[in-house]
């Protein structure tokens, strides 16, 4: 694990290519200001973790990135494109390059696991033949170790299995950037750790950049090259896990006090 982290840091440093650039992001719901000028840079191949307490607006942040929520102000550039200016097909094409793992998995509960995985490929049916699609589905399921569940319904899966299927669905289009919304929340520590290891393994395999959202420090410790603390709508502090562990800042300290 340690080795993996170091090697990834090296790549990031070498390339220094910013794949996601966020500047001055603001988002309010009515009078409730959730984000107030949030800044963030994600480098290629980097595993960036956004740490924040519940309700601090972490999910809102990544939903803004993928365009599920429209920010009130600020800029979001993804892979050199202004996300807020894109629409329709251009936006959809962009979204194909971004993976999103929902906090609740959001598996389509009227479809089997297989159909769930097939769904993101609908756009590509014209170029991808049935065999190729089938092969991809099986590969994705094997990657998460659930090849036998292809014909089950989501309601028949356990929480950990559902999370893995969600992960497989997120990665099936081989996105360049993946946004993980609390991948370990609600799972027992062992399963949580398995999921994190799976994320890292798949990441190495497909060479993705990712933003991991969590309040779980284990995730930070295991997977993050860099940690950004989201506090009161801003990027309050950032650094490697170890740097933050030693930080004096009271807000940051509060996160690590639990350890």
């Amino acid at each position: 694990m340690e080795h993996a982290t170091e090697s990834r840091t090296d790549i990031a440093v070498e390339q220094e290519e910013v794949v996601v650039r966020i500047r001055g992001l603001c988002k309010a719901f009515g009078s409730h200001e959730v984000l107030r000028g949030f800044d963030l840079d994600l480098l290629r191949g980097e595993n960036l973790m956004v740490l924040g307490k519940s309700g601090s607006g972490k999910s809102v942040l990544i939903k803004c990135i993928i365009g599920l929520l429209r920010p009130d102000a600020g800029h979001i550039d993804v892979l050199g494109q202004d996300m807020l200016a894109l629409r329709h097909d251009a936006l959809d094409r962009m979204r194909m390059r971004i993976g999103f793992l929902f906090q609740s998995n959001a598996l389509y509960d009227s479809m089997t696991v297989r159909q769930n995985l097939e769904f993101p490929m609908r756009r590509h049916w014209s170029v991808m033949d049935a065999n190729e699609r089938k092969a991809r589905i099986m590969k994705a399921l094997e990657d998460v170790g659930l090849a036998h569940t292809a014909d089950l319904m989501p309601s028949e899966l356990s929480g950990g299995m559902a999370k893995r299927v969600g992960l497989a669905r997120t990665l099936i289009m081989r996105p360049e950037i993946v946004l993980y919304d609390e991948p370990t929340t609600g799972l027992d520590p062992i399963t949580g750790r398995e999921i994190v290891e799976l994320i890292l393994q798949l990441q190495r395999q497909y060479n993705t950049s990712s933003i991991l959202i969590s309040h779980d420090l284990n995730v930070a410790k295991l997977a993050a090259n860099r940690v950004v603390v989201l506090h009161e709508g801003r990027a309050h502090a950032q650094g490697t896990y170890d740097e933050l562990l030693r930080a004096k800042d009271p807000v940051v300290r509060r996160f690590f006090m639990a350890l």
Binding site: L68, D92, M96, S104, A106, L107, Y108, F119
Partner: peptide, 13 residues
């Protein structure tokens, strides 16, 4: 359950 959002982000309107 965010399934509609999931569709949206997977490039299906």
């Amino acid at each position: 359950t965010e399934q509609i959002d999931a569709m949206e982000v997977s490039g299906t309107n």
